[in-house]
């Protein structure tokens, strides 16, 4: 669903070879870098990390929403949710393919996820407790994903940029669909509206964390900016999201769980309270409400599927021999 600015520092020293200068000149000229072009190792590593984290997020993100497919309250909602979760799987596949153009295999990346070495978006370590969570995830989580990913459509690395164009189109459909679920709940019974409010209360702050640590703590995004992998800072994207989302929430008749939220007339921005960065770091470190469950669900699917994948390989091998 989304790429989180996790900003792990790449410690590679700045490269000042003629090749590196030519590379930077191409970037500055807004040229697209393609898989067979020369690129600094650190650029390659940064992209592999970012694209694979994004892919893992799409895959793990199928779990919290998948939790409601069998309980969707109407057949129309059931089909829409199933299609949405399927889209996220498609995004994962698409992104793994983009990462593979950089010389890693999907197996390696999957292994990193299953062994707990790779990160994925912290948002998917929160539970989906009611049907309103499905509306809220579409509205806010896909909404935040779009904010993060629209600039990635102009990312300097061609395969990633192209993947993002298609993915963003689908994420914005998901966002509208999620908002429409919220609208239906908020126009429904008192119980439904309470469900919607409770979901917003639980998801609001974790969604703001999706944009990553504050700019004061993430000096490492400088390199990503210079390489035009990243075009806006975490705080700039977060502010953009809040400005777009708060009026949507008010239109639903909902309140935000932030007593400090107020409109700054002079600046034209919604000002929000302090984000609990301890919670963010704790969830990223593995201690969110669902980290263990999410990872073990992926591990179980992989382990349970081992005999199936082996059978497919064995069959293909026999077939090759026979042919």
């Amino acid at each position: 669903m989304y790429s989180q600015a996790l900003n792990t520092k790449d410690t590679a020293a700045a490269d000042s070879s003629p090749q590196a200068d030519r590379f930077q000149a191409r970037i500055d000229a807004e040229e697209r870098i393609e898989p067979n072009d020369w690129m600094p190792d650190a650029y390659r590593r940064t992209l592999i990390r970012q694209i694979s984290q994004h892919a893992h997020s799409e895959i793990v993100g199928m779990l919290p929403e998948g939790n409601w497919i069998t309980r969707a309250p109407s057949l129309r909602r059931k089909a829409a949710l199933l299609a949405k979760v399927q889209d996220e799987g498609g995004h994962g596949l698409y992104l793994y393919s983009a990462a593979e153009t950089l010389g890693v295999s999907r197996e390696e990346l999957t292994d990193q996820l299953l062994s707990g070495r790779a990160k994925y978006s912290s948002i998917f370590n929160y539970p989906t407790l009611s049907w309103a969570d499905i509306g809220t995830i579409g509205w806010l989580v896909d909404g935040a994903a779009i904010m993060n990913q629209i600039p990635l459509c102009r990312c300097s690395f061609g395969p990633y940029a192209r993947a993002m164009i298609r993915v963003c189109r689908e994420e914005s459909f998901h966002q509208r669909q999620g908002y429409e679920i919220m609208l239906t709940l908020c126009r429904g019974t008192a119980e439904q509206k309470a469900m919607a409010q409770d979901a917003l209360n639980r998801w609001w702050w974790p969604c703001l964390m999706m944009f990553g640590p504050p700019d004061t703590e993430s000096a490492h995004s400088d390199t990503s900016m210079r390489w035009k992998i990243k075009r806006f800072t975490n705080d700039a994207l977060r502010q953009k999201f809040v400005d777009a989302t708060v009026p949507q929430g008010h239109f639903l008749g909902l309140t935000f769980p932030d007593p400090d939220l107020r409109f700054d007339e002079a600046a034209g921005h919604w000002r929000f309270g302090t984000i609990d960065w301890d919670e963010f770091r704790r969830v990223l470190a593995g201690n969110g409400p669902c980290n263990r469950e999410r990872l073990s669900a992926r591990q179980k699917a992989h382990a349970d599927g081992a005999w199936v994948r082996e059978a497919a390989l064995a069959h293909a091998a026999k077939h090759r021999k026979a042919a």
Partner: peptide, 17 residues
């Protein structure tokens, strides 16, 4: 649909959905 998120491969995940 109960397979969603738990299929043996990503490709099969999409096919079953």
């Amino acid at each position: 649909s109960e397979w969603t998120g738990h299929a043996p491969t990503l490709e099969e995940e999409l096919a079953l959905a």
